[in-house]
Design a protein around this nucleic acid. Structure first.
Ligand SMILES: [Zn+2]
Ligand SMILES: [Zn+2]
Ligand SMILES: [Zn+2]
Ligand SMILES: [Zn+2]
Lengths: 145, 145
DNA sequence: GGGCTACATGAGACTCGGTATCATCACCGC
DNA sequence: GCGGTGATGATACCGAGTCTCATGTAGCCC
């Protein structure tokens, strides 16, 4: 075991840049609002592009880990993914078109602190999601009655 | 079609009180913290009580609809159920023992309003969940190092 | 109490999101 | 280009939840 020769690529090089991964990124970029793994699979199939289901899930996980993507829980209990800034924040989700806007934490910190004090819990993390209608869908609702 | 004779039980009588439903309620009462349908199935099987999986899910749905139960989304994306007051509120969940405490909405309303104003969304509903350690588990962590 | 019916049950098949396996492939540092 | 490691994808698998349907039973009416 002479370390000098048996360790060709010891120092971590990060994830590889592959064609399927680029493809997933493209498909995500081509979407608006939240989406599921199945959505991406359908997109790929619709364009005749080969892309394994497992690869989609693995790439999503990779992007989640890198903070480029976040998973949200819809009111019906199902999951979806949204493109995201890596910093901590929360989401307002349009129930009609699925579009998502981020908002930050500022006022929520006070809520968290108050609950911690009252319950004795030590709060380590939290999740806040708002659901409603985005401005565009409100307009559409008003005119389409 | 003489309505008088063909409508034996027209006026809604609500859900029936059956042995399996009582059993599910007992199993839930015997639990602490959040639980899954599989937990209840295991409980029933452990006690040698016959209880179909489908019935568990249907009874949970019934209780959800009645507001006696709520579904929460754990940080890992999985679902669990908690016994709950029917009024709107939120949950602080212990990541170690699964215990849940309710807290109300008061301060959050201001956050929701601020986000609505800034984003133009019309917010219809929201979900807030806090995760951390309950007082008991904090104590245990301190002593068990 | 007995009959009746609509509702409830539960075995089992099925769906769907997600994971594990593993032989083959391709990125990339050399 | 080579080579090894990490990536791919077909496929099997898993677990939560739903659907179907033949059978069971709560509960209303008498
Ligand atoms: Zn975001
Ligand atoms: Zn919208
Ligand atoms: Zn509650
Ligand atoms: Zn605890």
């Amino acid at each position: 075991m002479t370390e000098t020769s048996t360790l060709p690529t010891v120092d971590r090089a990060g994830p590889r840049q592959t064609r399927p991964r680029r493809l997933v990124a493209e498909l995500i970029a081509g979407r608006t609002g939240h989406f599921t793994a199945a959505d991406l699979a359908a997109d790929a199939q619709g364009r005749g592009l080969p892309l394994g289901r497992a690869t989609i899930f693995r790439t999503l996980e990779l992007l989640l880990g890198g903070g480029a993507l976040e998973r949200i829980d819809l009111p019906d209990g199902s999951h979806a993914y949204v493109e995201c800034a890596p910093s901590h924040h929360h989401h307002a989700v349009c129930s009609r078109c699925g579009s998502v806007v981020d908002f930050d934490d500022a006022e929520l910190a006070a809520v968290v602190r108050a609950v911690a004090r009252r319950t004795g819990f030590r709060i380590d993390s939290h999740r806040l999601e708002l659901f409603g209608l985005c401005p565009a869908c409100q307009a559409g609702e008003r005119s389409a009655g």
